[in-house]
Every structure is written in structure tokens, then in C-alpha cells.
Design a protein around this nucleic acid. Structure first.
Lengths: 233, 233
DNA sequence: GTCGAATTTTAGTCAAGCAGAATTCTGGCA
DNA sequence: TGCCAGAATTCTGCTTGACTAAAATTCGAC
């Protein structure tokens, strides 16, 4: 383990690759070349080339035709980017009035430009938050993240009372729509019903005059929740 | 004049060149190749190559062996970068507790990454300031800047009462030293004396218990001031 | 007015990244 | 067991932006 030498030779492109690979690994299995290519909107041969370089740099392990897996060094570098991204998103939303659907793009550029010091100052100004505006956990400075084990709204049994915890920040359209339903992380609701054959889920949002909403299957899959105890009284 | 087509094909490198050229032009004459090379810490031939491209793109005019001059398009693009830089500096200083000697480096990276919208929001959060922490005027959104006509402290006649208006943000060391003397834009003082042969200037800072300071010639040259009416009473 | 030093430009390379074409590998299925 | 479709890889070439070396030009000194 190189304890001293690992920093700072990361180009913008490398940072993007590491972050994308990290996020693909979160879905379980090793990240495939084609999946990385799609995530970064580049051609597969470009990925092959970069993977070779990153592998030689010791940031990931590559099993040809099988996919790649970040090494500890690679994972730390990726988490540093994730932390930057999420802190920037939180800062822009909290301090500069951005909507949660428009911060992703801005953060995507800023995460490469901000210094560790600026991130630290933003985090401090925010009171060292643990979650970004979409509910995603913010890695700490020393590179640890809360492992989140959420259940998608599509999998919550009917009758359950739950709280929305997290929505992917990737698609602004979806975020705008989710917000228009009165949903955001922290909002709780009851699952009132669900139609079969990947049909929509009906929920009643707590507080908001028992407002009912119908949510299509695909959208429901992207809303990550935790079941909560029903309010006593 | 291309009224529609001019935006957004600017690489980071091009942005740096335009800004550097703009700043060199502020010192009067057209910017020379070698001066640009020095400002950007690249080799002269690199500048020649870029100048050719920028000239073909209509961003500047090039008279071989004589220097370059920004076109209106080029000047607007440069001013956009200057505005970004100065607003970012002001924001970091005012809202995130940066010292005026450390913001330049951070702003140098951020100016390429921030969107027009973010700059607008930062400016609004700051109350649309007219000057950055070093006293440099911030160009407006539509690309106009106040033309500043300051006199260096080294040129102020003895006996004059003046106000410090601007200090270059390029050298953190100098900024730290200037601050340690109790000087920053807005501070007024009287020129008490000056030694000949490019010798030091003695000043008495107003307010601060008439504190006297001795300022070497080279430093005095970089402190830009305006004479003010002596206080009446 | 000419010579030489300094500056600028041209020419030729190089490395990083990306894409397209051609090739090779994998795994499923008969 | 052998073949085929799809995926991954290698090879080649393009673009950007930098560099060194060498040629060209300018300007100041005499």
C-alpha cells in the first residue's frame, strides 16, 4: 500500500472514470466496459484504453472480458469525488437557492475544480451534513460512507408506512416530477395500494392533508425508502 | 459581427489566453508573445500557435512580430472570465472566510467551471458588488467595466492624503504583507515623506492611532490609490 | 547604414484522449 | 462438441495543446 505517493496525478477524465466505476459497483457486480462507456457517454474502446492506464496505476483491477473493480486506492479517490459532488450539491441548494433538479450538472463540473480546503469550508458552513439534497449519504473526509440499505417504493408492501429517503440525482425531469408530487427525502407516507403487473402504487402522504398520489412502477423503483413505525397516537 | 454564433466553444486553455491577453492590454500597448508566454508559464511557440488559432476564430488580431489585440468578441469573452474570477474571489472571501491572499488560486480554477447562472447567483448573494476584495472592478454581466485611473503610492506627492484602492491579487506573499501593515482597499492615509533614488515612502494611516508605516519603492508601485480631499474639520 | 542580439515564427514531435474498423474472446445453444 | 451473436480489445488515426530546435524578423548600438 503506497501511503504517501497516491495523490494528485488524477486528470479530470480519470476522476470521472473512477466515480462512474464506483457508482456502477454499488449495484453489486464488477463494472463492465460497456456499462462504463454508457455512463460516461464515450465509446467502448476509450474505456478499454483508460482501464488499462488505471490498472497500471494501481487504481483498479481488470479481469479481461469480465469487468473492473476498484482497488482500495481507487475507491478512496472515487469517494473523494463523491464527497465533493454531494457537498457541492448540498451547498448550492442550501446556500444559493438551486433547485434539487438543477444542481447535478453544476456539481458535475465543480467537483473537479474545488480544492479540499473549499470542500471543507463548504461542509463547515453547512454544519457537516450527512446527506445531500437527494438523500444520498456524503462520504466523510477520511473516506468512509454509510452503507445504505433502502427498499424501493415498488417493493414496499401495501399498508406499510414509510419514509422517502433517497432519489437518484441523475435525471432532472424525474426530480422535478417527484417534487411536484410533494415528495422529497424525509417525507413519510402510507402505501395505500398497488396494481399488479408492474402497475402503479398509490400512496397517502402524511401531513399534507392526507394527499393521495399515484406513482408508476418505474418511478416507484427509483424512490428509496425505509419502513417506519406507525405513529403512536 | 457574428451576433449569434460566438458562444461556448472556448476551451479552458483559450479562456486562460484571453484573460491573460486582456490583462496585458490593460497596461497600454498590444500584448507581446513573450509577455503572454510569461503570464501563462508556457513557451513562446505555444503562444504563437494559440494566437494563430484565436486569430482565425476572430477573437483577436495579430500583427506578426508586433503583438495581438483582442477583437470585440475576444474582449467580451475575456471580460466574462474576469467577471467570473472576481466574483468568485469576492464570494469566497465574504461568504466562506477565505483570506484575500489565498483566493486567487482557488478562483483561477473555479472560473473555468462555474456556469453563468452560478455567477449570477453568487453576485446576487453578495448584493452585486462593484469591486473584488483586492479593489479590482468587477465587469458587469453585459461586459462593461469601470475604467480605473489610479495613481501608485510611489507617485503620490508628499503631503497628499489618499485612499488605497487596489492591490494586485497575483502574489499572496505581498498581499499578506500589505495586510500586516494595516492596509487594504478603502484605508486612507497621508504621505509623510519619501526617500530619493527609488527609496521607501513613509505614510501615516488614518484612524489607526496615526500609525506610521514605511513602504519600499517596489511595493509602493503596486499600491494603487486616489488622492482625496483632506477631511474638513 | 549595417551588424548582432533578442524576439518571434515555423517546423517537427509528443502525449493525452477519443472514435471507427477490424479482430478476438466469451458464453449460450443445438 | 461446435458454432454464432454480442461484447471487449487492439490497431489506426484524429484533435488539442504543449515542447525543442531552427529559421526569420525586428530593433538597438555603433
Amino acid at each position: 500500500m503506497s501511503e504517501v505517493s497516491n495523490q494528485q496525478v488524477l486528470t479530470r477524465s480519470i476522476e470521472d472514470y473512477l466515480k462512474a466505476i464506483y457508482e456502477l459497483e454499488q449495484d453489486g457486480s464488477p463494472a463492465q466496459t460497456s456499462a462504463i462507456a454508457e455512463a460516461l457517454a464515450v465509446a467502448a474502446p476509450s474505456v478499454s484504453g483508460m482501464v488499462k492506464r488505471l490498472s497500471e496505476a494501481g487504481l483498479l483491477q481488470h479481469v479481461p472480458y469480465r469487468g473492473v473493480q476498484l482497488t482500495e486506492d481507487g475507491k478512496q479517490a472515487a469517494l473523494r469525488m463523491v464527497r465533493r459532488h454531494r457537498i457541492v450539491e448540498t451547498y448550492l441548494t442550501t446556500k444559493l437557492g438551486y433547485d434539487w433538479d438543477s444542481v447535478h450538472e453544476e456539481a458535475e463540473r465543480l467537483e473537479h475544480a474545488v480544492s479540499d480546503e473549499l470542500i471543507q469550508r463548504m461542509a463547515m458552513a453547512l454544519g457537516n451534513p450527512n446527506y445531500d439534497p437527494h438523500g444520498a449519504p456524503i462520504p466523510t473526509k477520511d473516506g468512509s460512507v454509510e452503507t445504505v440499505e433502502y427498499m424501493s417504493l415498488a417493493d414496499l408492501p401495501v399498508g406499510e408506512v414509510a419514509e422517502l429517503r433517497m432519489v437518484s440525482d441523475k435525471d432532472p425531469e424525474r426530480l422535478r416530477f417527484v417534487a411536484s408530487l410533494g415528495l422529497k427525502p424525509g417525507v413519510s407516507f402510507e402505501v395505500l395500494g398497488r396494481q399488479p403487473f408492474r402497475g402503479p402504487t398509490m400512496i397517502g402522504i402524511s401531513g399534507a392533508q392526507g394527499k393521495e398520489q399515484v406513482i408508476g412502477y418505474e418511478l416507484a423503483e427509483s424512490l428509496l425508502c425505509v419502513a417506519i413505525e406507525k405513529e403512536v397516537g
